[in-house]
């Protein structure tokens, strides 16, 4: 979604990114650079099925890449942000900061 300077920052929020769990996935993946499925599940306190659904949404939007492999006999799924994912997260954070700036009073009452 594209918005002009005068539009309310809330209009620029992308539903794919803004959803609580997906925002958590993107934030953790951005910080960790590369993150394992089990780590995300533990940190976000999700069931495997619920996490998979959100990962599918992000993968379809080309915001993340999912890589499946093995370490020994154990299957492991790794998630990385795509450049589009990094841009989407940065834009989301910018919009949220703009929203906070609108809500916060410039001179708080003593």
């Amino acid at each position: 979604m594209t918005t002009s300077e005068e539009d309310h920052p809330a209009l620029g929020l992308d539903d794919v990114v803004h959803q609580r769990v997906r925002l958590g996935i993107l934030t953790i993946t951005h910080e960790a650079r590369r993150v394992e499925f089990g780590y995300l599940r533990t940190q976000l306190e999700l069931t495997a099925g619920n996490l998979s659904k959100h990962l599918s949404v992000l993968e379809e939007a080309a915001l993340i890449e999912i890589e499946k492999g093995y370490e020994g006999r154990r299957g492991r799924t790794w998630v990385t942000l795509t450049p589009a994912g990094t841009t989407a997260l940065t834009e989301e954070i910018t919009r949220l900061k703009q929203l906070i700036a609108r809500v916060q009073p410039t001179n708080p009452a003593p």
Binding site: R33, V35, E36, E71, T80
Partner: peptide
């Protein structure tokens, strides 16, 4: 880092 499930810097 791999064992913990994250990347490294």
């Amino acid at each position: 880092a791999r064992a913990r499930g994250v990347g490294t810097r």
